[in-house]
Design a protein around this nucleic acid. Structure first.
Lengths: 208, 208
DNA sequence: TAGATTGTTAATCGATTAACAATC
DNA sequence: TAGATTGTTAATCGATTAACAATC
């Protein structure tokens, strides 16, 4: 299992951005790109792109740059998204609905495979062709389906409880939409999406 | 206008996280915290928190730490969220609906003030007490309302066009949910929310 | 007072950039 | 060949951490 040693996490975080831009270029019919072109597009230096990629191998050719399809496949493989990960969604309010119906997962390595909520008024409802299940059965369903990735879209005061349940069921990656920092066991990763935090980051630079 | 010089952007990005945690502690009835306690909670070193805050002033007291209410107010002021910014939402699909109905903006410095879409089937519909307006009137409405912050929730192939329109109307901060990198004029800021990119970041560490 | 914790300095650590030989 | 661009090294830059005097 050729595990690569100690790549900086900040580099890993940029790979999805590269992947996204490569997909875009491929869709535009291009066949090759260069670190310069890619960097220009993303507002990143070409040196950084070459350095980042060099952690994983040699993907380009002097003089001509990178074959888009090849580099795309390589990064997909590195990120383990040359497969489809089943994903659970917990919390089927407006946001959960939006995520369940979002068409952008399939092509990028994920497939929503189960939906959970604890509101009896919506349990049993069908969303995106799936039935909303009660939290009680979450542990069993997640284990049955081998789910290791989940998105949490419940109110802030329930997010830690849900995260505990998910970790216990074997989930190793949590995308948390609740605006709180979660405590999770070692081996479980959390990424946060808090639109307000992003907005606040920008208003700092705005004159009142 | 006591503008502070050249604070690293990475520090600014952490302030909303601090703010979120402080709000949480205040709600829990606490009155004081320390850099150690806050750091523990957030998985950040206490030294970093003290260093970050020291860019803006002296907010603590030796021996006792930080008064929560005071520090909270100070950071709100620094981030310019001790006021309510009107925000436009462009793209009223599932995600736009979820954002329009989200109750988490008001307490954190924002107020959704107008909704836009270009789909005649939903233009005129009412969401969260607001009417969905056509993109044609976006420029005028945004100027009338003095909107300088917008959230873009349109399909990827329309996001750049929308961003251009927004910039032209005077919007200075764009939160972009479309999975593409936007090109915007100098003086306009963009933050990105791409759930798939976050998921891919985590699957790197997952065994296949 | 004794204990705790700040704000700050200096040291360390890590990430980014510039430069260039190699080579397509 | 001449031009372009890679992968890599070394230099630079910036961020984090450790340590501690000051002081509540």
């Amino acid at each position: 299992m050729g595990k690569l040693p100690n790549i900086p996490d900040i580099v890993i975080g940029r790979l999805p951005i590269y992947l996204r831009a490569l997909a875009h270029m491929i869709q535009g019919g291009k066949e090759y790109t260069s670190s310069h072109e890619l960097g220009e597009r993303l507002g990143i230096s070409s040196a950084q792109i070459r350095k980042d990629l060099s952690h994983f191998g040699e993907f380009g050719k002097q003089g001509t740059g990178y074959n888009l399809a090849y580099l795309y496949e390589q990064i997909r493989h590195i990120l383990h998204v040359d497969q489809q990960w089943p994903v659970a969604i917990v919390g089927m309010g407006d946001l959960g609905h939006a995520l369940a119906n979002y068409r952008g997962f399939e092509t990028r390595g994920f497939r929503v495979s189960c939906l959970f909520d604890n509101d009896v008024k919506i349990i049993g409802d069908s969303v995106a062709g799936m039935e909303i299940l009660p939290i009680d059965v979450m542990h069993d369903v997640i284990q049955q389906q081998g789910v290791r990735v989940a998105m949490v879209a419940v109110p802030a005061d329930q997010a830690q409880f849900v995260a505990n349940q998910l970790a216990q069921a074997g989930v190793k990656a949590i995308l948390n939409y609740a605006p709180i920092t979660l405590a999770v066991p070692v081996g479980v990763r959390v990424q946060y999406i808090d639109p307000v935090a992003h907005l606040q980051h920008m208003t700092y630079y705005l004159e009142t």
